[in-house]
Design a protein around this nucleic acid. Structure first.
Lengths: 344, 344
DNA sequence: TTATAATTTGCAACCGGTTGTGTAAAAAGA
DNA sequence: TCTTTTTACACAACCGGTTGCAAATTATAA
């Protein structure tokens, strides 16, 4: 019946006998409009049930007040916390968040990047798909002066914003913790390419070993193809079946750590007495497993907030000669000692 | 330098000496444009690096090709799976998904509802905040003919689409399972208002008891204020400290179930021999806890997909006299028997 | 060859705000 | 009282596609 119930600033203008420009400016407290007029405009707008049309408002600037977020998936605890952080910061600034999942596929990532651009988002936050090597599909944002933040899984070289943790240092800290607990034969599970976060963590692991004069034993380092429960179980079993069994495991992911504990329990190996385990991320499962899994805290929500804030801060700085073209922000991680590694 | 690198259909039109309307139509294979022209338009567009501007395209229809999703939070496993499902269905149809978190606050929900409207989304999927009683803030979507789907936590009476599970039946099944395992004194933890999913689950619990001639003992039913780890721990402790202790617990959430198992372990009560436990949702923690928690499967991703499909299907049916004004879709749940309740 | 129909393409208004520029009115200064 | 500023508001172009309708071109029929 009433159907086209949409109230526009034209309707308000007509009713008040003012120009639409006056309405537009009055609605946003422009200084050239008198207080009295502003008040009247706002009152009338409210009475008429006027609601701004972001779509139309964004057309001129050719940008929606929207942050595009492109992630491998949204169901991992770490990534959903990341989203939560982004969303909180965006909401505070009156921005909306649009989410897309690459499902760790390079092809999907390329498509979605385009889709994000087609939607004229104000900024983009991305954690790369596992298989992504070439990142030229992100060039369009750079050319277009759209702020772009890579978070957690970042490209090796790309002149833009990165928000990450120091994976090397975290790997070092985790390994050192095990050494401090008296472990002599520390195993490690790794994954991904030589540019991945896992590789950095492994480098930290190696550095800690070396610093404490513990020789690196190749047999104690297993590489898995995917960070899944099944692959983790196989890796754990392989490690714990060695003749000279490890007395500690640095698992660069909580699923891996949990799986190691479960495997040990199945094999009758006592955790932490015979095997100390430390994970990574502080996922919910880490404090459900018995014994609780020591882990490395990963500031997911904070990373999200930081990323969003970087986007928001760099919105207006368009085409300035002295703008920041590259910035790497490191967030803190900590060793969270729980039962699975507490030996002393 | 090059800055305004944006290629529009005007640029293409100029280059090809055609009208913009021809370009617009050619780009979308309109039947009134010859094959040859279409081909040439597309080729030129690609060469010039043209990218459609969804913003401008949406202005006329006054709707973005976007589905708005309003949830209490995105970090619960169930809800992130829901998002994943929505996103998959939306992506398939070329729609984007915008996410907002009410953080279980009624006030935030009201604001975000407006924000969703201001963004002129094509449809809305919502799971209500805990405290929401009045749902009149959703009326704008109905009046505006914007498809609206409530999922999981739905209002008592609202003439629109609902996608839910049969909580009564699920509660019944869970309880019956415990009865079948030989439990005689089955405890229950409940939460929320008398219209919440938890209340339905409790009704199912009561029905199962009655059907099997097991008298309902008030002491065996504890109500908690929030479905959190801490509240759950207190409730479990209270139940397991009773003189006449329960021999089974139906926990309408996996956190509750996990907490019950942990409490039992602390108190030296054997699960499942002395206490059978069944949870709800099939969250990851349910198969990490030892013994594994039996649970009720909750088709989160499928619910998301279904909700999105309902939105998409109802986009065009505007103002038809015979349109669907209310539809409740029930998805299936199943008892997933694991160690925590397996006694026979 | 001419009339009629079918196929192509172009014109221009439109979607709903935003904003540069121009001008009248009110306030301040001479 | 007259000029100079300020203040307050209006006009109209603009953002980039979309689409109804008319016009032009080509194909088919008579």
């Amino acid at each position: 019946m009433k159907e086209n119930s949409e109230v526009t600033i034209y309707d308000i203008a007509k009713k008040l006998n003012l120009a639409t420009s006056t309405i537009s400016r009055g609605l946003k407290d422009h200084h050239t409009i008198s207080k009295k007029t502003i008040e009247m405009i706002k009152k009338t707008a409210a009475e008429m049930g006027y609601r701004p049309n972001n779509l139309a408002a964004s057309l001129r600037g050719n940008k929606m007040r929207t942050i595009g977020v492109l992630l491998p998936t949204v169901t991992q605890p770490f990534l959903s916390s990341l989203i939560s952080g982004i969303e909180i910061a965006a909401q505070k600034a009156g921005y909306t968040v649009i989410i897309m999942q690459s499902h760790d596929s390079y092809e999907e990532e390329v498509n979605l990047t385009q889709s994000l651009y087609d939607n004229r988002v104000s900024g983009v936050i991305c954690s790369l798909a596992m298989g992504t090597k070439d990142t030229s599909h992100f060039n369009v944002f750079i050319e277009n002066n759209t702020p772009l933040v890579f978070v957690d899984r970042v490209p090796q070289s790309f002149e833009t914003f990165h928000v990450i943790i120091d994976n090397f240092s975290a790997g070092y800290k985790a390994t050192k913790h095990l050494i401090d607990q008296g472990c002599k034969r520390i195993a490690h599970i790794t994954a991904g390419s030589e540019f991945s976060i896992y590789h950095e963590r492994k480098k930290g692991y190696l550095a800690a070993l070396e610093e404490h004069n513990i020789p690196f034993d190749e047999n104690l380092c297993v590489k898995i193809n995917s960070v899944t429960y099944d692959d983790a179980a196989k890796a754990s079993e392989k490690l714990l079946s060695l003749k000279s069994r490890p007395d500690g495991i640095f698992a660069p992911g909580d699923i891996l750590g949990v799986s190691a504990i479960q495997c040990a329990k199945r094999m009758g190996i006592k955790v932490p007495e015979e095997l100390a385990v430390i994970g990574f991320n502080n996922d919910p499962i880490s404090y459900i497993i018995d014994p609780n899994l020591s882990t490395i805290t990963h500031p997911a929500s904070k990373m999200g907030q930081t990323s969003a804030e970087i986007i928001l801060k760099n919105l207006k700085q368009s085409r300035k000669k002295d703008q920041i073209v590259k910035q790497i922000t490191f967030l803190n991680t900590e060793v969270l000692v729980r039962e699975s590694s507490k030996r002393i």
